[in-house]
Design a protein around this nucleic acid. Structure first.
Lengths: 258, 258
DNA sequence: AGAATGCTTGGGCTACGGTCGAAATATGCC
DNA sequence: GGCATATTTCGACCGTAGCCCAAGCATTCT
């Protein structure tokens, strides 16, 4: 029946767009808020340029991505945080991909260590950073009450924290003026513990990039913590990042034992 | 290539399952944590029993639903909160369904007023309830700090609030022992403001049902606030619920005018 | 201007998935 | 035991979506 597209099926179009492996790969590749050219996306998804173009046109039509033309390139990016959130939510359901190769397993490990969750740091590093911010008294659970609390529910910066963040290079007061949610927990799908979200999470991450404390891995949303970053994070936030060296050490020991 | 299912496409299977209109309708119908029989789901989705059975087998295989056999019926329900969360996240992306009929528009309005978001109250009523709980000093933004804060980020119950909730019939201390996240904000996709989530949100909603203050609309996840509920909510939490009576009154006037 | 690069369009092939009718299986009721 | 109901399995049909090749625009480089 034409008049009967089944009530409650509103999510189907968007879900269907994410339901194709090639498109899913493209969307996942765009999760780190970068804009990628059509050709790159085609390569990443393992399909030919015409096929990719077709997929991208669909994604564009469905409002999941936006495009900007720059010369002979067309750069695509996710249409917004809602899209990223939906992809993240779906990854919680995803059966962990079977490990097919050493290369893949190393990549997965890198992703678990540190990655971008759209515009903020995630993975073991993201979780460790939030823990350090809380332990160091820079952030506390938001204590505001009244009608304001609902919108702000999440974390607040202490007076001392505001100072520390200013030294680090993040202007908290400016962030507060933004309409975006200030700071909240975002459940990490590899760690199953929260990392820092919102305007503050994004700003800190941007600053980490500027300082060269973290840098993007090539063509994945993996992120690498530089030696300078390791030192800086320890100094600025007392962020031990303990899981990382430990994991490495354990890994080495295990390999040596082989 | 068989060895090349495109990295980053892990979300595709789950998304594809949600990408069919019939399956999407079924999943959405299950959003209120009820278990529905295969036949009902077939009717709801507007497909024949065999087709529905096929879809349900796929959903089962994909781990999105579970099934229990009771006599000659088979009751399906969502496999967990992660599934519900993914569906919710996708609805944020969904183009609001065009209004086709008066009936549909009434249903949509009812859904916007009050509905279940898996296991807790959402819609205007959900948002109003959270506002009231915060305004009444029953809940405050969680002020705990240290490593614990991350996991608990959200809301906390005050001493006075614990007392008020006990009178209402919710044992806060018991809830705290549960492994589930205690209380947090859940962005409402119709109101674009948060409503109450977590073990506390679920417990309060269950209790509202027990008291007969709210009751399910038939075969949708819409919820109706009873007169007793209106009185009780005002008395217990000072919850004005102003949008509801207004909407009803306006609605009735409009109908009488016909 | 002419060639090379990046991307999209059109055509045609294939295959998979959604659909239903009919029949089989299981359960409950009388 | 026999009939009605609930659900699944089987088989067949059809539409459509994904894929690539080849050709067509657009842009940039030399």
């Amino acid at each position: 029946m034409l008049t009967h597209p089944a009530p409650g099926a509103e999510i189907a179009p968007a879900a269907a767009l994410m339901g194709d492996p090639a498109r899913a790969a493209m969307l996942t590749a765009l999760l780190d808020q970068r804009a990628l050219a059509a050709g790159e996306l085609a390569h990443l998804a393992g399909v030919s340029p015409p096929t990719a173009s077709n997929h991208l046109a669909r994604l564009l039509d469905g409002g999941l991505v936006t495009v900007v033309r720059a010369g002979r390139h067309r750069y695509y990016r996710l249409a917004g945080r809602e899209v990223a959130a939906a992809i993240e939510a779906l990854s919680h359901l995803a059966t962990p991909a079977p490990v097919r190769s050493l290369h893949q397993s190393r990549q997965a490990a890198a992703l678990a260590r540190a990655r971008l969750c759209y515009d903020h740091l995630a993975g073991q590093a993201g979780v460790a950073l939030l823990d350090a911010l809380l332990a160091g008294g820079i952030l506390v659970g938001c204590a505001c009450s009244g009608p304001e609390a609902a919108a702000r529910a999440g974390f607040e910066v202490t007076a001392a924290g505001e100072c520390a963040l200013a030294t680090f290079g993040v202007d908290v007061r400016a962030l507060r003026r933004s309409r975006r949610r200030f700071a909240g927990p975002c459940l990490d799908w590899t760690e199953r513990r929260p990392h820092l979200n919102g305007a503050l999470g994004a700003a800190i991450t941007t600053r980490l990039m500027e300082l060269g404390w973290i840098e993007r891995g090539d063509r994945r949303r993996a992120v690498r913590i530089t030696p300078a970053g390791h030192a800086g994070l320890t100094a600025a936030f007392g962020c031990a990042l303990s899981p990382l060296p430990d994991a490495w050490a354990a890994d080495r020991t295990a390999r040596r034992a082989d």
